[in-house]
């Protein structure tokens, strides 16, 4: 399907998306559109206001207040942006494997904290990594870390178990003779996690197995990548 068609289909789904009446694959298609089209985001914001108008407030059970405030008191907040430093921990051997993902299995910028992967209705043939990605998307304990990309765009890391699914939306083209290269930085020593695959629908995605708990960074490198980073990272996400 051409990109224009994909975008048109995703536009068409915006109202159903605002109602959460789309399935998971459609959800991701719409989220890819939202990642690249500010007009679509604004249209969605309006539909969401409409959906919110349906809500009739109800007093929750009284005991809930104390429980929530107690959890809040011991829960730290997610910093949306901020400087990233490598966590001080000894380097360890790890499989750092990057795999280009089928677009349908990939996650866009606006990933919710939980996604129920449906087991019926849609059958999509995916690469071997897709099973792992599906598990990650379904993991209710998955965490999201986002950070701006120097020069434009935003990177998101979905952290589930030992693995990290990295999405870079709106990343600038690396230019002739260059590639974007992923690194996992443990204890200050970067280890290559391969090249960022080409973007589809404006978003480039990679699965970094064993990257959880480390800093995942991206640098601009000569075509084919380098042994060690030769430039400053354009983004570094502390996962």
């Amino acid at each position: 399907m051409a990109d224009d068609d994909t975008a048109r289909v995703a536009w068409d789904l915006l109202p159903a998306y605002a109602l959460d009446a789309v399935d998971d694959l459609e959800r991701r298609a719409v989220e890819r559109l939202l990642g690249s089209d500010p007009q679509a985001r604004r249209a969605l914001d309006e539909y969401r206001d409409v959906v919110a108008a349906f809500t009739v407030d109800e007093a929750p059970p009284a005991h809930l207040r104390g429980e929530v405030l107690a959890r809040v008191a011991r829960t730290s907040q997610t910093a949306p942006r901020g400087p990233v430093t490598a966590p001080a921990r000894p380097p360890r051997r790890r499989r750092a494997l990057v795999a280009a993902l089928a677009a349908a299995a990939a996650v866009a910028v606006a990933v919710p904290t939980t996604i129920a992967v449906r087991e019926h209705g849609e059958t999509v043939r995916l690469e071997a990594q897709a099973d792992r990605v599906a598990q990650m998307l379904a993991d209710p304990d998955a965490r999201l870390v986002t950070g701006p990309i120097a020069g434009g765009g935003e990177a998101t890391a979905l952290v589930s178990g030992d693995d990290v699914l990295v999405s870079a939306a709106g990343m600038p083209d690396p230019g002739e003779g260059h590639d974007w290269q992923l690194w996992v930085v443990a204890g200050g020593s970067p280890e290559s996690a391969g090249l960022m695959p080409a973007a589809t629908g404006g978003v480039s995605r990679a699965l970094v197995e064993g990257g959880a708990g480390e800093v995942v960074a991206v640098t601009l490198e000569p075509e084919g990548g380098s042994e060690q980073p030769t430039t400053d990272p354009v983004v570094a996400l502390e996962t």
């Binding site: 109602l19 959460d20 985001r41 914001d45 969401r48 206001d49 959906v51 919110a52 809500t55 809930l64 929530v68 959890r71 809040v72 829960t75 730290s76 907040q77 997610t78 910093a79 949306p80 919710p112 904290t113 939980t114």
Partner: peptide, 30 residues
């Protein structure tokens, strides 16, 4: 949802949604 609201309060963007709409969106999704 309310713990998520606390946790991700920095992501709330009043230019894009009211607090009410934001919470409805989070709650419906969950």
């Amino acid at each position: 949802v309310m713990v998520e609201v606390w946790q991700t309060a920095a992501r709330f963007d009043p230019a894009r949604a009211s607090a009410r709409t934001w919470v409805v969106t989070l709650a419906r999704r969950r």
